[in-house]
């Protein structure tokens, strides 16, 4: 009986230990998950892309001017976007649609059903002021407005 009790007490301690460990692990995982979700929402202006000039570095007299506004949906991993672009033309063309962030991969669709020309790998600077989108070797750098 005592043994049994001992056993029972041992089981109880073991159970408590497991529960504690599990709680710790869950807490740790949750904290880790919160750390890994990037908050890329906000208004971003294209300031550079490697090899092709933008804004400051125009293409002859044709300037590229791109502003991307990302708005979160129910979570930080999906939402809607508004895109204003001037690529040579005299006034901005506007697009909108939805975006999804899977870990560090950003993809999306325009509201007319057209998918983006590519998905992008996302890198957010430590101070959250610079968003770098990389695709097929091309690098697009956006600054937060």
């Amino acid at each position: 009986m005592k043994w049994n009790f001992f056993i029972e007490r041992a089981s109880l301690w073991r159970g408590m230990l497991c529960l504690t460990l599990a709680l710790c692990l869950m807490t740790s995982c949750h904290e880790k998950e919160e750390e890994e979700v990037l908050d890329i929402t906000g208004s971003w202006t294209l300031v550079d892309l490697y090899e092709v000039g933008t804004r400051a570095v125009s293409i002859g007299s044709y300037e590229i001017d791109v502003t991307l506004v990302l708005t979160a949906g129910t979570t930080l991993t999906e939402g809607t976007f508004d895109l204003s672009q001037t690529v040579g033309e005299g006034r901005a063309r506007n697009f909108s649609g939805t975006w999804t962030l899977a870990e560090t991969t950003l993809s999306g669709n325009y509201s007319d059903g057209t998918s983006w020309g590519s998905s992008y790998e996302v890198l957010l600077s430590d101070d959250k002021s610079q968003l770098t989108l990389t695709s097929k070797g091309e690098v697009y750098v956006y600054k937060k407005q």
Binding site: G60, L83, Q85, R93, F95, Y110, G117, S118
Partner: peptide, 18 residues
């Protein structure tokens, strides 16, 4: 006419930048 060309590795079908 001077036609301006930007060469990228991809483009969307509707002319959007992304």
């Amino acid at each position: 006419q001077e036609v301006a060309i930007v060469s990228r590795s991809f483009k969307s079908k509707n002319g959007g930048w992304l």
